[in-house]
Structure formats: C-alpha cells, structure tokens
Nucleic acid binder design. Sequence first.
RNA 1: GGUCUCGUGGCCGAGUGGCUAGGCAGUGGUCUGCAAAACCAUCUACAUCGGUUCGAAUCCGAUCGAGACCUCCA
Length: 492
Amino acid sequence: MKELYIYNSISGKKEKFQPIQDGHVGMYVCGPTVYSNVHLGNVRTFMSFDLVFRYLKHLDYKVRYVRNITDAGHLENDADEGEDRIAKKAKLEKIEPMEVVQRYTVDFHQILNKFNFLPPSIEPTATGHIIEQIEMIKEIIKNDFAYEVNGSIYFDVLKFNSKNKYGKLSKRNIEDLIHNTRSLDGQSDKKNPQDFALWKKADSQHIMRWPSPWGDGFPGWHLECTAMSTKYLGKRFDIHGGGMDLKFPHHECEIAQSEACHGNNPVNIWMHANMLTLNGQKMAKSTGNYILPNDFFTGNSDHLTKKYSASVVRFFILQAHYRSVLDFSNNALLASEKGYNKLMDSINSLPNLVTHKESSGFDLELWIKDCYKAMNDDFNSPILIAELFSVVKFINQVKDGLAKISANDLKSLIHYINIFVFDILGLKNDIDEGTEFEGKLKETVDLLINMRAEARLNKDFDLSDKIRDRLTEIGIQLKDEKGGTTFSIEKL
RNA sequence: GGUCUCGUGGCCGAGUGGCUAGGCAGUGGUCUGCAAAACCAUCUACAUCGGUUCGAAUCCGAUCGAGACCUCCA
C-alpha cells in the first residue's frame, strides 16, 4: 500500500519515492509574492502541494513542509530598470511596503483557510532571512561564481556552465539561451544577459533596503528560496515544488546557486503543478485574465452565474490531475458542484444504512486498494474521485435494497471514506456542520416531513405538494427513499 | 524565432499498446399519487495523414491547432 511513485520534473519520469532519511520528508514549495490578492491559479498550485502534504502525512511520514512568503520586492524585469512590485503597490496605495506585505499575507492565509489548507510546518519570509542570503552570496563569491558591479552582485552563469551544467531542469542549453534571449532596454551591469542578480544595489529612492558588505541593497529573487530551504531542510532535501512557470528561470537558478554554494544539487524530486487557465489562457495578474477566490463566495463575477462554496471549488480543482492544464469555466464548476453534492449526500446517509449479516455487490478490500493505487500513482486525485463515485453507487444500491453491507464493512467503509475524502482530499462536508442551529433545523424539517407523510396518507396532495414545493423554493430538497424521506440543503 | 507540453465523446476530465475511467448533460425504463432523488439500461471519443505491430486513442514521423517558458509570474 505504500509504494508511492512521484513524477520528477528533472528526470521526466515517475520515480519510486525514497526519502533521504527514513520516515522523514523535507518539502519546500515556492510561496506567493505578497503584493496583491492570490488568484485561483495561485490557489491551485498550493492546493496541489496541500494534497501532497496530506497524503505524505497519511502515509505516516514525518513531513517538514516549508512554504515561503516572498515579502521583499523584486524587480519587474531582470534588466537594471523596472520597478519593485511591492514598492510600486505601496506607492499606489500610499502605504508602507510592509503594510502591503501584511495586508496580502493576511489575505493569503484567510483564503487558504477557507479552502481548508493545512498550514505548512514553517512559513519563512524573505526579509526575515537577509543575513542568510548575504552569507550565501559571500560563499558564492568565494567559490568564484559571482561578481560585483557597482554595489550589485551577479551570478556568472557562463562561468558556472563551464564547470557545471546550467539548464538541467528546464532542459535548455546555454547556447540556445544566448541566442534566444530578448534584448531588454536599459543599461545593464551584467556581463551576460543570462546572469542573474544575487544582490541589487538600492538607489536612494528604494525603501526596502538592507546593509551589506557591498552597500545598501536588497536580495535577488532566486536567492531567498535557496537560503531558506537550506536553512530549514538542509543542503539536500526530498521534494521541491512550485508552479510550472517557476521552472525557468527561478528553479534553474536555485539549482545553480546551490551547486555554486554547496557543490551539490539541492533536491531529489522536483514537482511542478500545471497552470489553471481561463478562456484558454493562463490566469495572470498582469493580463487581467484571472478570477479571485472571493468571487466564488459572492458569485460576483462575469465568469460566474452563481455562488460556490470553497469545498466545491476544491473538488473541481482536485478532479483534474495536478500536472495537467485545467481550464476553468462556470459550466465545469456547475458539473462539479452536482458531483460534490452527490458524494456528500451519499456520505451523510452512511450512518443510517441498514446492515446485513454479509456484504454483497461490492468488493470493499479491492476498493480500498484501488484508492491507494490512485494516490500512489503520482497523487492521482481524479482517479481517486472516480473510485469514490463507485462506492457512492454501492451505497445508493444498499439504500435501494439492491446490495448489502455488513456492520463490519460499514464501519470500515466509514473509516476509509473519512480518510480519503476528508483527510487526504481535504474536502469539507458543507451539508453536515453539526451546529446547534443545524440540529434544530433538522428537527424542524423532519417535522414538516412527518406532516407531509400524514397528508399523503390522507391523499391530501395539495398540502403535501405545498410542503415539498415550498421547501424546494427555500433550498431544501426532499428525497423519498425506500426507507423514508430524507432531505438535503442547497448551500449558498 | 527557439525549447517544451498538449490535442479524448455535448461539456469537464482520467488512462496510455489488447480489458467500462469518472462527473455533468442527453435518451429509454424501474420506483412514485405526480415529481425530485436513487437505481437499471443506453447514445455521442480518442485532431488529420502516413508508418511500426497480430493488434494503437496509446509507439514513430509529418501536418494542422492550442498552451507554457524564453522578461516578473503559482
């Protein structure tokens, strides 16, 4: 049950997962730059790794999951011009850069919370690790892979490439890169366009600045992840994840920095989550082609016809494999919502299932095996969900008297459903929240159900239909099943 | 222009040499006072053209189309 295979971006193959230290996993995921609200595409990436985190924990690994917050402003392009995104936003909103950082960090946490994310083990910030970054730059300079120009330090990619291979991860070779680098406007201090900044001199206007041996400045974007992953996970760790769009140059540079600094490849398995598209295009702040998580909760968006709960959105995202491009649309979401409700209705009916001496019509052992098989095959959540629907069908057949379940199997089924649906997929049961309010609501609806049953016995269909139709209008659907009437509440 | 990935039925999405993916929608039936829900059955597929093979949606080649990266990006 425990043979986990993970697709490794650097080898292009699924590999059997073998942690460096038995029973322990170190995982680093590139977090957001907190200069604006996270959009659904960002959420998808982090959700992919939430799934990975949850599954590894379920497999009883002791996981240290590090996901950083990028709170130091980085330039909009790698020429020497361009603005620092956080500073730009700060200027725009007339607040301190750290206020920008605080505002969007809080937003980030609130959103992820709504989607039922598990918090990472450590969530370090770039600005909290300036010293580590400076130390790392010193080491890279000492190893002769970086040079200083006018108070800025650049990584010498060509020199690095003459001794190591630059481009392993993104499968690029340096000659192609040289030929295909677009010439950016503006004067650059860099020896070659492929070089990247480890440290940038801050001009007098720049607010976010720190002292360094090379004068006041701020760290380069790629460096923070190397510094923080090294600090918390060591020079070599198990899994490094992030969005597909970070593969090049960000992750490539991380590899180069580690090798230049420590002399070794930092990561065993590189995982890349694919993009979420809207209208066939990647969601991106810069193009305006995006949808914000809060839009779902309010239903306030040109892309949506109604409100959706966070669980439905989570379910929608997990219905696609993390390595595939997923195209967002209202219709797809509507379909997911129906599927999600069907799954939850079925789960909610489990405690009321009538049991028999023996089960028939379903192989529970095989089902459990297949569920693990799906997850062990590179976290294949869509297959797992397909398996869940096969058990939904069985549950409904039991309700209809077409299949049987023993008390033991029912206990086991409830146990594993909880594991797969709630622990691993991280879905929440919107329907059964178990509050006092909901308890009273249930009693009230049951009262109406009884009154309707009585009316039907008396063939007073006017009254019985009125009760049913009014409840439907309110958003409470009655279901006449073999064993009696149950109901489900439409959410939102 | 370069590198890479992908093209699956009405929609979303798995699979990847021979065996039903699944969800949503549709159709026929069972159940029901009528519905809804549920159950049973069922229709739409693997971009195009070649090649390899006993056999390809799955491998190879070409063509067309889409996307990602090459600049900040989840």
